[in-house]
Write a protein that binds this DNA or RNA. Structure first.
Length: 556
DNA sequence: TTTGGAACAC
């Protein structure tokens, strides 16, 4: 890097160069010069350097800490900058360790700039106890009148569902601004107190974009898209966040047509918008559309972020396209994405498992520093898809041994697996475990899995008894599964009982009549078959004729 | 020469 001669004389001459830093390499070069010129103890220059580090380096970098540690007696500015970096990236424990270090050995006193970052760190993990400690420390330091501290405390207590505490802070503030009012309003929205939130919105002396967007988000969360759209239309200036919030709302309500037209209306879109639209399609089971959107974005020469790639991986998993999976992985490797981040790693495991690359999925899974419920479920489901029922069962057992608590979705997966693989004893054991050890109440889907499992292996009586003990009344799916099993094992007697029940629950479903008729037919009970046909036509039911894709698309 | 902190979208 060419250096201007003026650098010889003053540390300030480095500033313009420092501010133009874009990469780690740039930073290293500047740092070298700082050391060479003996500016390592220059508080002003190091403060600037640390600020630029936060903008350029990845969050996990410990470079700023190293630079800070080389300063013999850092001033309060340096402490506060490092504290903020810690609060945004490190664990709450590390933030507090730094705070203690600051108070004990250092020759500085925390000031009003120190506390808001710490409070923010507490609110991001809902650390109520820790946040109260910081609040008390801030009061002891005499900074409680500060509007930044007040606003961060309102946000913190609101996020921790301590709305009364938030309101107390709000009421006791001598100066409030848009942030204080908006934080209080968000607190009410998160507690479901729409009236109080509305009151805040109407009464606040000044609103900015974030205020309006927060209100839209609150209404979207309550499922009131009509009101959300009204607020959106009433906004003086709409930005990307306003549009994106509404797009997400439409997507979550299953209305992708509305989401897409809102997207198309946007004057300018950022990466979050693209990612929101993609994950909307994924959530609504339209992976092909998600991939198309990715293609549109790609054609515009935009570099996808990790959120977009996670959505793309979910779409790929739904499609089961091994080719696309391989492309995504190699693209991410070349693009130096952080594949170790928890949600990225989980998406990679899921994608490979569902696309048939169990070997790769297993490797990624085992290399994860921590295997959570989601990753375990991806693997178990992958093994299920590939017919490795026994392996899936032993992985489920390992998950429990590792202390990961299965939820209702996990049990649906393992019961389905047992049913597919005909693992009757294991399935029954898991069903029992779910109720007795994990106190989960089985859903209709769980019952249907069990009926399938018992029914397929010929334990029709057990399946019938289970269904009679089912607290969820009149769930047709599980009874239909049992009728299917009766047909499989030619059990006319039970088939008649089950069918009778089904005719009551869903009288318009011709499939049940057809199943029973097939049971009769296989036992050569043709009288019963014709009786049944008669009953069907009385009710105006018709067997829906089988129709193949070819027949329906080829002209006659 | 004089630095640092809070709220809204995936």
């Amino acid at each position: 890097m060419p250096l201007l001669p003026v650098l010889e004389h003053s540390p300030f001459a480095i500033l313009p160069l420092l501010k133009s830093c874009k990469t780690v390499r740039n930073l290293n070069q500047i740092h070298t010069h700082i050391i060479r010129r003996g500016y390592e103890q220059d508080h002003f220059l190091i403060a600037q350097f640390l600020s630029i580090c936060a903008a350029v380096l990845p969050a996990s970098s410990c470079y700023p800490t190293t630079v800070f540690n080389a300063v013999i007696s850092p001033n309060i500015y340096l402490w506060n900058i490092l504290m903020k970096a810690h609060c945004e990236n490190a664990s709450i424990g590390e933030c507090f360790a730094l705070f203690r270090r600051m108070r004990k050995g250092a020759n500085v006193v925390p000031d009003k700039f120190t506390f808001p970052s710490l409070i923010k760190a507490c609110s991001s993990v809902m650390a109520l106890r820790e946040g109260r400690v910081v609040h008390a420390a801030a009061v002891r330091c005499g900074t409680e009148g500060d509007v930044f501290l007040g606003s961060s405390l309102i946000d913190f207590y609101g996020k921790c569902r301590e709305i009364e505490c938030a309101r107390k802070v709000f009421d006791e503030m001598s100066v409030r601004n848009e942030v204080s009012w908006t934080s209080m309003m968000v607190g009410y929205l998160n507690c479901g107190d729409t009236d109080a939130a509305r009151w805040m919105f109407d009464e606040m002396p000044k609103r900015n974009g974030a205020t309006w967007n927060a209100m839209i988000k609150g209404l979207v969360k309550l499922g009131d898209l009509v009101s959300a759209k009204k607020v959106f239309d009433a906004m003086p200036v709409r930005d990307e966040v306003s549009f994106t919030t509404l797009i997400d709302g439409y997507a979550k309500a299953g209305d992708m047509a509305a989401a897409r037209s809102m997207f198309d209306e946007m004057p300018s879109k950022d990466l979050v918008t693209w990612s929101t639209l993609m994950s909307g399609y994924v959530q609504n089971g339209k992976p092909g559309e998600a991939v198309k959107v990715f293609g549109e974005m790609w054609a515009m020469n935009l570099k996808p972020d990790e959120f977009i790639l996670v959505s793309l991986m979910s779409a790929c998993a739904q499609l089961g396209s091994l080719e696309l999976a391989k492309w995504i992985e190699s693209y991410m490797r070349e693009g130096s994405y952080d594949m170790g981040r928890a949600h990225v790693a989980a998406a990679l495991v899921d994608m490979n498992a569902k696309c048939g690359n169990m070997e790769r999925a297993t490797k990624l899974f085992e290399e994860m520093p921590e295997r959570d419920l989601v990753s375990y479920c991806s693997m178990i489901q992958g093994l299920c898809i590939h017919g490795c029922g026994a392996q899936a069962v032993s992985l489920f057992n390992r998950m429990i041994d590792e202390g990961v608590r299965p939820d209702d979705v996990a049990f649906t997966i393992i019961l389905t697996t047992c049913s597919h693989a005909g693992l009757v004893d294991e399935g029954c054991r898991f069903f029992d475990l779910m109720i007795k050890k994990y106190s989960l109440s089985p859903s209709p889907d769980h019952y249907a899995c069990m009926v399938n499992l018992l029914g397929k292996s010929g334990k029709l009586k057990d399946a019938y008894e289970l269904l009679q003990s089912m607290p969820v009344e009149s769930y047709a799916g599980a009874w239909g599964a049992l009728l299917g099993a009766c047909r499989l094992h030619c059990d006319i007697e039970l088939g008649e009982i089950v069918a009778k029940r089904l005719f009551e629950v869903e009288p318009q479903n011709s499939g049940n009549y057809v199943l029973l008729s097939n049971i009769y037919a296989e036992a050569d009970r043709w009288m019963n078959v014709s009786d049944l046909r008669e009953r069907m036509s009385e009710k105006g039911l018709r067997k829906i004729p089988g129709c193949s894709y070819l027949e329906s698309t080829t002209p006659a």
